[in-house]
């Protein structure tokens, strides 16, 4: 027990081994300390606000929603009526030209965003609600309830949605956008029900829920007070996915002519453009506006979903820090070898 002390001779001067202080390290990795304003927000909101992808998506969505809200005030022409000659080129008169039927494309686009976004959100919201109710009941009550509900969740996952919707819609005859939204909700709740159920099962055995049970809290109170708040991010994630599904499926249904052709939505605009052979006749301005609007909305929602994923899954969030860590090591001639 004599030479516990390191053999000084083999050790280079300590200074060479010094680590940067935490502050220096943060500066080198490009991490900014939280501003005081941010620190006041709840944890998930902080993560969201610092997520560029999520913010970008939200910004695009916000623009579309504002346009949709203001549509009646800012549409230059009545979107439901002829406003000029068929297929007028875009210009001062008609910002995005006119359709084959002579309706103003720009006005239709704005009016369409109302219906399309509404349907998407109705579908997303109702699907999430159904999924939440079914998922929580199945997960929390367990036993026979779980068995029966899980059977229906799995059935709804396994049944092909579009063909089923086609059957439904074709018997409804000229489904209005709202009806389409509800039909989509009825076929699209399976995914969120499944995630919510898994999440509930995980939460059910956590201390705070067990404690509430021991205290003799009523079941629905436990669900509302203890379980629900702890899966807000999963609910938001499910809602975003269901909304994407709603908007895309609505456009698809109307595109193949299952909607009511007299309503004005992005889907029916595409339908009419396709029927009018807009591309063949060089009337690109009839088809591009709704197409781009759908793509942008879809992209924006995907961005938001990305952000939600990164918030719920720390593993995914950590990927954003790999670059700086790699560079830190490289500057010190060390390899970053994490897989």
């Amino acid at each position: 027990m004599t030479d516990i002390l390191p053999a000084i001779t083999t050790t280079p001067p300590r200074a060479e081994l010094t680590a940067p202080t935490q502050r220096e390290l943060m500066a080198e990795l490009g991490l900014k300390p939280r501003s005081r304003l941010l620190a006041r927000l709840p944890g998930w909101a902080q993560l969201f606000v610092t997520n560029k992808k999520g913010l970008f998506g939200l910004a695009i969505l916000a623009i579309f929603m504002i346009l949709a809200l203001l549509a009646p005030l800012i549409t230059p022409y009545d979107p439901y009526r002829r406003a000029g000659k068929p297929h007028v080129q875009p210009g001062v008169e008609h910002f995005l030209g006119t359709s084959r039927q002579g309706k103003d494309n720009f006005s239709q686009l704005l009016e369409g965003s109302r219906a399309s976004l509404t349907v998407g959100f109705i579908a997303g919201f109702s699907a999430t609600l159904i999924g939440l109710a079914v998922g929580i009941s199945a997960g929390y009550f367990g036993g026979k309830t779980d068995e029966v509900l899980t059977f229906f969740v799995n059935v709804s996952l396994v049944l092909p949605a579009l063909p089923l919707i086609i059957v439904l819609a074709s018997f409804i005859e000229e489904a209005s956008p709202t009806v389409i939204g509800l039909v989509l909700a009825l076929t699209g709740w399976g995914w969120s029900a499944r995630t919510i159920r898994t999440q509930t099962l995980a939460l059910k055995n956590r201390e705070f829920v067990l404690a509430a049970e021991l205290m003799g809290e009523k079941k629905w109170r436990i669900i509302v007070r203890e379980i629900l708040p702890n899966m807000s991010s999963f609910v938001v994630g499910g809602f975003v996915l269901a909304t994407i599904y709603g908007i895309l499926a609505e456009a698809a249904l109307e595109f193949i002519g299952l909607g009511s052709p007299n309503s004005v939505t992005w889907g029916t605009m595409l339908y009419w453009a396709m029927r009018a052979q807009a591309l063949q006749t060089g009337a690109w301005f009839e088809i591009w506006p709704p197409a781009i609007a759908i793509m942008l909305t879809g992209a924006a929602l995907v961005m938001v979903n990305f952000a939600v994923d990164e918030i719920t899954n720390p593993q995914l969030a950590a990927t954003r820090r790999i670059g700086p860590i790699r560079r830190f090591l490289r500057r010190r001639n060390r390899r970053a070898d994490f897989v």
Binding site: M26, L31, R34
Partner: peptide, 8 residues
């Protein structure tokens, strides 16, 4: 160090 979103 463990590198967090805005702390280490």
């Amino acid at each position: 160090d463990y590198v967090g979103a805005n702390t280490v």
